[in-house]
Nucleic acid binder design. Structure first.
Length: 225
DNA sequence: AATTCAGTCAACCGCAGCCTT
DNA sequence: AAAGGCTGCGGTTGACTGAAT
């Protein structure tokens, strides 16, 4: 254990709050050179007066190549709503099926836009609710089936992450964007990102499996927004 | 034009699980 | 097998922005 790097996060004077373009540049350059991961050493080696967590978060949610910000499409909304119904508030797991989106972005989008509209007339407990429940039941079966298929398929190729619990096995740019072959990649974490010559590439994910059933007519009666 | 309110989003905090020793 | 450290996740907060009054 590197004692100096360990203590770095606890120093008085560690900067907090919004990142400046200069800090972004430093972090980006550092990760370009060394690859993501080993966040503990980032502040000490890069000169950033930020804690490791902050660096990781900034990279994951903002600087990481391949991420899309804002303007969620209707299809993405549907994916999020369905996966949220299936997985609950496991945003990292949900994000693994939307490789261009971060868990934080999805979480924010859910809380600000989708949460209100996902269960129409739920509060009334009337027919709207019944319709939603029936619809959800149907799709849960579909979802589970698709997940099983995905898991079975990925077992021989690139398996999706373990959705059964928290921790390092769940996907995140950190885990997936390690220099190849990362432990996460070996475990089949999705989205998988490969680092080569400083270029990161997103690989296809089992989202394709979902698209076949997420976007059929099963939800036509359900308001999305 | 000024003030208030609501919505959005970036970032922080604490906890839990995994890994290493 | 146990303990300590590290990483990742989800919840929450606070700053900022635009709309409404």
């Amino acid at each position: 254990m590197n004692r100096s790097s360990l203590d770095f996060d606890n120093i008085v004077g560690v900067k907090k709050g919004p990142w400046t373009p200069e800090e972004d540049l430093i972090l980006f350059a550092y990760v370009q050179e060394h690859g993501p991961g080993n966040w503990r050493s980032v502040p000490a080696n890069s000169g950033l007066m930020r804690c490791s967590k902050s660096c990781r978060l900034r990279w994951t949610n903002y600087l990481r190549p391949g991420i899309k910000r804002g303007n969620f499409t209707e299809q993405e909304d549907k994916v999020i709503v369905h996966l949220q119904a299936l997985l609950g508030n496991r945003w990292a797991a949900i994000a693994s099926y939307l490789p261009e989106r971060t868990d934080n972005d999805i979480k924010n989008h859910w809380n600000t836009n989708l949460k209100k509209s996902k269960r129409p007339r739920e509060a009334e407990g009337g027919e709207g609710r019944g319709q939603w429940e029936r619809c959800l039941q149907t799709d849960l079966h579909k979802a589970k089936k698709a997940l099983c298929e995905a898991l079975a398929m990925e077992a021989t190729a690139v398996a999706p992450q373990d959705h059964s619990g928290r921790g390092s096995s769940t996907s995140d740019a950190d885990a997936s964007a390690s220099p190849s072959p990362s432990p996460a990649a070996e475990k089949g974490v999705c989205p998988e990102v490969e680092w080569g010559s400083g270029i990161c590439q997103l690989k296809p994910t089992p989202i394709i499996l979902f698209e076949s059933w997420l976007f059929d007519d099963s939800l036509d009666g359900v308001e999305m927004s």
